[in-house]
């Protein structure tokens, strides 16, 4: 088994190859933080990771992709890339919640705790975990102040937590998800025969679409 994992739901453009054997099965990895250039950076990163591992794309048996939640434009880059790889290679594409990848990477064994990423517009994407592998609720998108009571006293992981210390006083890293963590989590779940998610984006918000106001009169009244 050779998993190619990628995630573009946070400012990190992250790609990893994983042999699927154990939680330390990462073969090669690349992570760059640049929230505005997911589209440009992702394919060269895939190419670099494969070159580093001395492998070719057609050796990959499964694609793993972070399905967010995350800012839409970047999020779609990863999903579209994963979908198209799946089509071209004829291999399955598995979705994993990006926040689950962060929870897994946190290494927190005893919860509860919270994962929060930056949703922009002064909001966070967040979910609550029992432990590093078990999501208790969410994901959801909210203003930090509105969830302060719910998360009070809990450790919080991710850039969204670090951004709002009033709501998340016990904030810690990692800031962004890593594809290596995503791949390791997916490998565990696949080995256990668990169902992964469809590779569809978790937008959580409806598209911004203002119905244009009724026709504006041009004749001066």
């Amino acid at each position: 088994m050779l998993l190619l994992a990628l995630d573009t739901a946070t400012p990190a453009v992250t790609v990893a190859l994983h042999d699927g054997t154990a939680s330390f099965g990462t073969v090669a990895e690349s992570s760059q933080v640049d929230a505005r250039r997911h589209g440009e950076l992702l394919l060269p990163a895939v190419d670099r990771v494969l070159a580093e591992a001395g492998l070719r794309l057609d050796a990959v048996t499964d694609i793993v992709v972070g399905v967010g939640p995350g800012p839409y434009t970047g999020l779609r880059v990863g999903l579209m890339t994963a979908d198209t790889f799946g089509l071209a290679l004829g291999v399955p594409v598995h979705g994993v919640c990006t926040l689950d990848g962060l929870a897994y990477a946190s290494g927190i064994e005893d919860g509860p705790f919270v994962v929060a990423t930056d949703a922009r517009r002064k909001e966070v994407y967040w979910a609550r975990y029992e432990d590093a592998r078990t999501r208790a609720s969410g994901p959801a998108v909210d203003r930090p102040a509105d969830i302060a009571d719910e998360v009070a006293g809990l450790p919080a992981v991710g850039a969204g937590a670090l951004l709002y210390p009033d709501t998340f006083p016990d904030a810690r890293g990692p800031e962004h998800v890593s594809a290596a963590a995503l791949a390791a989590l997916a490998a565990e779940r696949l080995a256990a025969g668990a169902e992964l998610l469809e590779p569809r984006p978790l937008y959580l918000r409806r598209p911004d679409a203002q119905v244009p106001k009724n026709y504006k009169v041009v004749t001066p009244q």
Binding site: L42, L43, D47, T81, D83, T84, F85, A88
Partner: peptide, 14 residues
């Protein structure tokens, strides 16, 4: 960006 992402992945994989 959606089309460009698909085209790049397709060209690369093929």
């Amino acid at each position: 960006l959606v089309g460009v992402s698909a085209a790049k992945a397709y060209a690369y994989a093929l």
